[in-house]
């Protein structure tokens, strides 16, 4: 047995485990380690991939726009892509924990391990794999992002004003020519404290603030942009599922930040037209009435 109990202050000397163990046995031990770790790794990877694919849609709410579903897809894909790497790290840690337990005597250190100071193959392949992963993540992100930058020729203009501590929406008078050639008309400007959007009509939000910075976050549309005083922040989306959700303020804005939210609905365009036709008279609570039967 090599001595590991030399607590001499200045001249610690240890003997290497390698000098004791025959080279053949050494190789065999190594293979055992690799196999054990691989089992743990495979198990964890499968677990991670399944979690990414099946847990994500359960954890996240139903989304009402392509942008919202892109967020869910991204979480799915990134979890699946990261699973093998994360699982490898966990596997080595877990395996080393299981495998070393019996050798650990609390009061004195166990024999030294093999003096592995690096492994060109391991480091090299790690670098290559992590670089490829990053390239993939970036490619995925840029593609998704580019697909969200499409500007529709004509979109329903909604002016969004954040202020301490309320969102207000105004629909300027306009006629929107829809992709199919139909038109949608807002005959007279309407102010509202709820957000109602016609389904399948491209929307352009023009977001600004009266005072401090707020975060305009129509949660289930998957878009978000700050309302900055003196700035017009443009956000685009096309809601394509009926439903209700909330607009929440995502940037702390003072005393009543927590209360800064609005009820939002995606409604059939006939309902939208009927609602908007009432002009200002229809602005209060009406959205709740109209969309009562939706979803």
């Amino acid at each position: 047995m090599s001595s590991n109990h030399n607590h001499g202050i200045h001249h610690a000397t240890y003997q290497s485990i390698d000098e004791e163990v025959a080279p053949g046995l050494h190789k065999q031990l190594h293979r055992q380690h690799v196999r054990g770790t691989l089992y743990v790794w495979a198990l964890l990877t499968v677990g991670g991939i399944l979690a990414g694919l099946y847990l994500t849609p359960i954890l996240m709410p139903h989304m009402n726009s392509p942008e919202g579903r892109a967020a869910i897809e991204t979480v799915k894909v990134f979890t699946v892509a990261a699973a093998p790497v994360a699982a490898l790290v966990c596997a080595v840690a877990i395996y080393s924990l299981i495998n070393s337990r019996h050798r650990s005597h609390l009061d004195s250190p166990p024999v030294d391990g093999p003096p592995l100071r690096g492994n060109a193959l391991a480091s090299g392949s790690w670098l290559v794999v992590s670089t490829l992963l990053v390239v993939f993540l970036l490619f995925w992100g840029l593609t998704e992002w580019a697909s969200q930058q499409v500007v529709h020729a004509d979109a329903l203009q909604v002016n969004v004003t954040g202020q301490q501590w309320l969102w207000t929406y105004s629909y300027p008078a306009q006629t929107v020519i829809l992709p199919g050639g139909k038109t949608l008309t807002v005959p007279k400007a309407v102010d509202a404290t709820t957000l109602d959007l016609p389904i399948n009509v491209p929307v352009q939000f023009n977001v600004t603030s009266k005072d401090v910075t707020h975060g305009f976050w129509p949660t289930q549309l998957g878009i978000q942009g700050d309302a900055n005083p003196g700035v017009n922040d443009v956000l685009r989306t096309t809601p394509d599922h009926l439903g209700k959700f909330q607009v929440r303020c995502s940037q702390i804005c003072g005393l009543y930040h927590a209360y800064m939210y609005t009820q939002a609905s995606v409604i059939p365009d006939s309902a939208f037209t009927a609602w908007i036709a009432q002009g200002d008279a229809g602005r209060v609570l009406t959205s709740a009435k109209i969309t009562g039967g939706v979803r």
Binding site: V92, A93, S100, S104, P110, D112, P114
Partner: peptide
Amino acid sequence: MWRGSNWV
């Protein structure tokens, strides 16, 4: 950690 004599 790999193949180390993990002293827990």
